[in-house]
């Protein structure tokens, strides 16, 4: 199997693990951990395609990864601030108990 396919399979497995974590855990921070894993799997895909794809000297893959890392850092900061604010307000971070906006 070519190394590109191996990296893509690893990224798919990492994405699936992150998705399972985000879907099954009931704690807001653990959902955030799952989302971080999924973002990192996407980064791995971008770099694998840059390394083994055609036209690598255009550096599009690494540039995408740079921007993704910056956006993911902003997302993590805002998400954790929201979780801390929710914890202060409701004394819980379990997402099934935060039902103020429940329809």
């Amino acid at each position: 199997m070519s190394p590109l396919k191996l990296h893509l399979l690893l990224a798919a497995a990492l994405f699936a693990v992150g998705l399972a974590g985000a879907l099954t855990r009931r704690h807001a921070i653990l959902v955030l951990i799952g989302i971080e894993l999924m973002l990192n799997a996407a980064n791995l895909n971008l770099l694998a395609f840059w390394r083994y794809g055609p036209n690598p000297e255009a550096l599009n893959g690494p540039l995408f990864v740079l921007f993704t890392i910056a956006v993911a850092a902003a997302e993590a900061a805002v998400g954790l601030a929201l979780i801390i604010a929710i914890h202060r307000r409701y004394r819980t971070t379990r997402i099934e108990e935060i039902r103020r906006l429940h329809g």
């Binding site: 798919a12 699936a16 998705l19 399972a20 879907l23 099954t24 855990r25």
Partner: peptide, 23 residues
């Protein structure tokens, strides 16, 4: 400590199906 969701099976199944599709 925290217990996992009461029925994590559906979430795990969705993730497995996604991995199968991607693979």
């Amino acid at each position: 400590r925290e217990r996992i969701a009461n029925a994590p099976v559906s979430g795990i199944l969705i993730a497995l199906a996604l991995f199968a599709l991607l693979a």
